[in-house]
Simulated scan of single mutants.
Amino acid sequence: MSAFEDGISRVMRILSSKSKSLRELAALSEREVFDFYRGANLVGLDLSQQDLRGMNFDDADIRFSSMNGTIFDEGAFNRSLLDESQNWLKDEFVYSLSDIENHSSDSILLFIKFRPGFVDSCIDILGMRFKEFSARSNVGESTLRKARKGDIISFETARNILSFLKDTLPLFDPDQQKLVSNKLRQPMALFFSGGINTAFKPVSPEKLSRLFQMREEIAASIPNTNYLSWRDTAEAIEWNYTYWVERDL
């Protein structure tokens, strides 16, 4: 069977299924269930009483769908398209492990805030003592307490915590691995600028993308410099953009 024929066969299995379970339908595709519905059109469906734990719905459109009694992971719908009646499905946290790993912290200085309880829940799942986690993750106890409470911490501290969680998972049983892995992959953090003689301000994914674009435009406007090798704050980028780019528009 060719790859095309195999794909058609999977689609037909889904279409002919009588199941209303999003999990069961995704499993029929033989693809990873976690991100199967990212970007999907789920408008106006009855998704009530479903168990959607271990699934993520980034960029999925679920407006006007019933979610009564549905259980899901924190953050699963934080980057979905929702209607006003569905705002209870989300909180403010929009960044996941991959976003933190992929951010170029050598380019833009940012800080991080974890969802309160996120770190504690991971420690509890792995059955670790607080002091052990602190020592093995190379994060001081006072700083780790800040991360647990949802206070703002440095990017480096956040990466140490997440890297340790990710790297230590193979030492635990599959159920523990899965629970922590799902928490790492769901949105559970916020990015902040400021903190250096200025108030902290949240940085949305849209603003972050714009900041990187602004850096490119600044670099093109400053002659004979290696500007892109510098690390700037968001505030410095905005000031430099005003001075070097907007003045010439």
Rank of each mutant, 00 (worst) to 15 (best):
D83H: 12
D83V: 05
S85D: 14
Q86M: 08
N87H: 10
W88Y: 13
W88N: 11
L89C: 05
E92M: 06
E92H: 02
E92D: 14
F93V: 03
V94G: 03
L97A: 04
L97K: 09
H103I: 15
S105L: 07
S105G: 06
S107R: 15
S107D: 12
I108Q: 01
L109Y: 10
L109A: 15
L110R: 02
F114L: 03
P116S: 07
G117W: 05
D120F: 01
D120R: 05
S121C: 00
C122P: 01
C122I: 01
D124H: 10
I125G: 00
L126T: 03
L126K: 05
K131D: 08
K131M: 07
S134Y: 05
S137W: 00
V139G: 04
L144P: 09
R145Q: 10
K146C: 05
A147L: 06
K149I: 12
K149P: 01
G150A: 12
G150T: 11
G150I: 12
D151F: 13
I153W: 08
N160V: 07
S163R: 13
P170G: 08
L171M: 13
L171Q: 15
L171H: 15
F172H: 10
D173I: 03
D173R: 02
P174Q: 08
D175R: 14
D175Y: 04
Q176T: 05
Q176C: 09
L179H: 11
V180M: 02
S181W: 07
S181H: 05
N182F: 10
N182H: 11
